[in-house]
Nucleic acid binder design. Structure first.
Lengths: 244, 244
DNA sequence: CGCCTTCTTGAATATTATCAAAGAACGTGG
DNA sequence: CCACGTTCTTTGATAATATTCAAGAAGGCG
């Protein structure tokens, strides 16, 4: 998995372990509901192709999208702590997933303290990201929310694709974006036209180009949580555990 | 630590390890800023006495409180993944903390897979809690936000104090509560009077009594993430790691 | 070509923020 | 123990922001 190698070196054995997770493949068509909140959660997924999103539903029927998943992401981590899944998983477009059992994860925990530590670190990083999201999606204006959302997406894509540039595919409807950044679809549209008018972005057939990323980052005081992490502490931990 | 024993049994050795974390003690007076975003993060804290909160600051100077810390909580977990702390820690009242080094955590990771797994599970649980918070604080009405906030607090307090009943101390100003649930202090006040009028709560000198918790839970579709967790998977993991 | 979904734009409405001021509670020092 | 200053809470009025409803435009797909 390219995504993990971005953060640490992996031994051959580690790679073997991870490769096992990607043995099986299942394809899903766009809009397909893969699981629903309350289902038993025995499966975790690695994304091979396509975008998906996890969401929860409010009492009044509105939907809150919690995370957009890209190729290379692992889906279902937070749910490990509970018996039932807490979210709905939907394919935003046609996609391919590699499902594996919770128990396969245990296998990894048993055999590689390095990967365990990395998974731990990723869980902590995701906490920071969620904290950012609370700040952004409950306090900032519509234009700021959309800016953060786009910056967040492109930063994540750059982890696996450093040469991405200023343009990315955006296979999401405005209603979906709204569900992700806590806005109505109508206001997402207005935010898009506003940011376009400011000269911050351009839209060309399903793609978005950030034409003034620097200004956009300033606008929302953007922090990239994906590019770098402090891995020193668990390197130490890992090596020490190996000795023990 | 009572809080951890709620979830799993701890061996004598595990207890020793955890006791080491609580060796040193430092007292802080109310309103004291213990650390500020951007500081080097070498210290993690266990709360011995008093309430505190971690917050981030928006560009316009407003504050977003990310988490309220109670006795028994560990402060600073999400920041482990980064070199600098990402939040501000402030004492909401006079309190006593037990600081320890990141490296002491490594010591634990080395010596107890059980505690490691539990910490991992707690990190995943906190992710679920943060996801709940996004849903609540960015989508729900002021009264619903306040309801959720109070239910969340009392549920957490019950983990260490099962006989708590329907009443709890609330050593926070309305401005602080507002910063936590993304409302202005004025609107927190209005939400309080509204919930009082509905017969959901009473306030008596710094304490809150939830007079109709059942209805309050229904109102917001409350999910208690603290009472139970699925620990079976890492029990298995722990025992397997020990054999390895 | 026509249907369906998505996007855009306008108008009316709702919710919350902000500003302002008064009342209550609290702590401190005399 | 009281007076005073400070902080916190409450209430009212106004302003800002986003929602909802509705209708028309633009694409995509059969």
């Amino acid at each position: 998995m390219k995504k993990l190698r971005h953060y640490i070196d992996l031994s051959d054995k580690d790679r073997e372990l991870l490769a096992e997770l990607e043995e099986r493949e299942t394809a899903f068509t766009a809009r397909k509901e893969i699981y629903t909140g309350g289902d038993d959660n025995d499966a975790i997924y690695v994304v091979k192709e396509g975008w998906l999103h996890s969401s929860t539903v409010l009492i009044d029927g509105r939907r809150q999208i919690v995370k957009i998943h890209h190729p290379g992401d692992i889906i279902g981590f937070p749910d490990i702590a509970y018996e039932h899944v807490t979210t709905n998983l939907v394919a935003a477009e046609d996609c391919v997933l590699c499902p594996f059992q919770k128990s396969a994860l245990v296998e990894i925990f048993r055999n590689s303290t390095k990967i365990t530590s990395l998974f731990f670190a990723l869980a902590l990083r995701d906490q920071c990201v969620l904290i950012d999201n609370i700040r952004v999606f409950s306090r900032m204006s519509s234009r700021e929310r959309l800016s953060w959302f786009l910056l967040d997406l492109i930063s994540r894509l750059r982890v696996t694709n450093p040469d991405l540039g200023d343009m990315m595919r955006l296979p999401l409807t405005q209603a979906e974006i709204g569900d992700a950044i806590s806005l109505s679809n109508v206001y997402v549209s207005r935010a898009f036209t506003a940011l376009t008018r400011y000269g911050f972005l351009e839209r060309v057939d399903g793609k978005v180009r950030l034409t003034n990323e620097r200004k956009m980052r300033e606008l929302v005081d953007f922090v990239d949580r994906y590019r770098e992490m402090d891995t020193s502490w668990f390197d130490a931990s890992a090596s020490k555990v190996k000795r023990a």
